[in-house]
Write a protein that binds this DNA or RNA. Structure first.
Length: 326
DNA sequence: AATGCGGGGGC
DNA sequence: GCCCCAGCATT
């Protein structure tokens, strides 16, 4: 991984919850386009998001942009300690420790998903490494490996070990340099650690999503006001389907104005949010005159809404524009 | 301590 | 299909 502070930071942010193979090409294009903190700070948020598109977790891009603005305003130098780094937007315990140890040589241990697994197995700890005690135990174990070795190399090597040898399903213990002292290996079944996440039951939902397009090809969006998910994001009006009523009638009921044009029902779209599995059925209408809408509603170009939204909007755009109605 | 946030690859 | 991924912010 890069030793330059800016490059290191960008790559670590991209690597959050994203496999490294996927990061590399995007990282190279990103730093070509934005070579340093100043260039990134000078860019528009829209350009940054465009360079990020496809990577997911877009909040990372917005936070990185904010971080660049802060760093550029402060002289263009990144702080060098994990404690200071963690105060910057988008930087948590993992990223702070990664940059501090790999770029600045600070002896601070880190834990990602790989090291959580490796540590839990070596220690055969009953505590989940994602919990408070288990996490502390793993970090202490990593710190103990830094005796004399460069801290960044220790952190990096352990992550690499987890990614290539001590894998979730079929750990290759024969090839593992830690097999001697591994308590889980000694017990016989390394995959017993860490304890499996308790999985929440999957909830199936069916949503009716009303896509109204005006003469400028803008879509009617509504800011999601309540509910546990998507709050504050802008999407076409939607609601859970009441199977007792015609879809067209329900679609009309979701709109803030009357529509006399015909409503077409399109092919369903799948979307998942954590433990919810959503089948979204687009209902589509094209109106022939602009309509003024109240606060909480907006007209926006669906390909570039310039409003906070969910990837569901992109799925709708792709689906509605390519599929015929049914 | 839980929950939301994307998208792709492996099995 | 389901699980996981060089996590963070918010509640």
């Amino acid at each position: 991984m890069p030793r330059d502070p800016y490059h290191s930071l960008v790559s670590e942010l991209m690597a959050q919850q994203t496999q490294l193979d996927r990061v590399v090409p995007r990282f190279e294009a990103f730093v070509r386009r934005f070579p340093d903190f100043r260039a990134l700070a000078a860019a528009s948020r829209e350009d940054v998001l465009e360079a990020w598109s496809g990577l997911g977790y877009y909040r990372r891009a917005r936070l990185l942009h904010r971080l660049a603005l802060e760093v550029a305003a402060g002289g263009g130098e990144l702080p060098s300690s994990a404690a200071e780094l963690e105060r910057l937007p988008g930087i948590g315990p993992y990223t702070a420790a990664a940059v501090a140890s790999m770029v600045f040589g600070e002896a601070v241990p880190l834990m990602d998903g790989n090291i959580a697994r490796v540590g839990a197995r070596v220690l055969a700890s009953a505590d989940d490494p994602r919990g408070k005690e288990g996490r502390a135990a793993v970090l202490e174990w990593v710190r103990g490996l830094m005796n004399g070795a460069p801290p960044g190399d220790v952190n990096e090597a352990l992550m690499e070990l987890g990614a290539t040898v001590c894998t979730p399903n079929r750990p290759d213990c024969v090839r593992c340099p830690l097999t001697e002292g591994c308590r889980a290996r000694c017990e016989g079944d390394p995959t017993a650690y860490p304890p499996p996440r308790q999985t929440r039951a999957v909830v199936d939902l069916r949503w009716l999503v009303v896509v109204v397009e005006d003469p400028k090809r803008r879509w009617l969006l509504r800011q999601v006001a309540e509910g546990p998910i998507l709050r504050g994001l802008w999407l076409p009006p939607f609601a859970e389907i009441d199977s007792g009523r015609p879809l067209e009638q329900q679609a009309l009921g979701l709109l803030p104005f009357d529509v006399t044009q015909s409503i077409g029902i399109s092919k369903p779209i799948r979307h998942s949010i954590t433990h919810r599995r959503i089948e979204a059925i687009p209902a589509r209408a094209v109106i022939d005159h602009p309509v003024r809408v109240a606060k909480g509603w907006s007209w926006a170009d669906p390909a570039n809404p310039r409003l906070p939204t969910s990837s569901l909007l992109g799925k709708l755009l792709g689906s509605v524009s390519t599929s015929s109605s049914v």
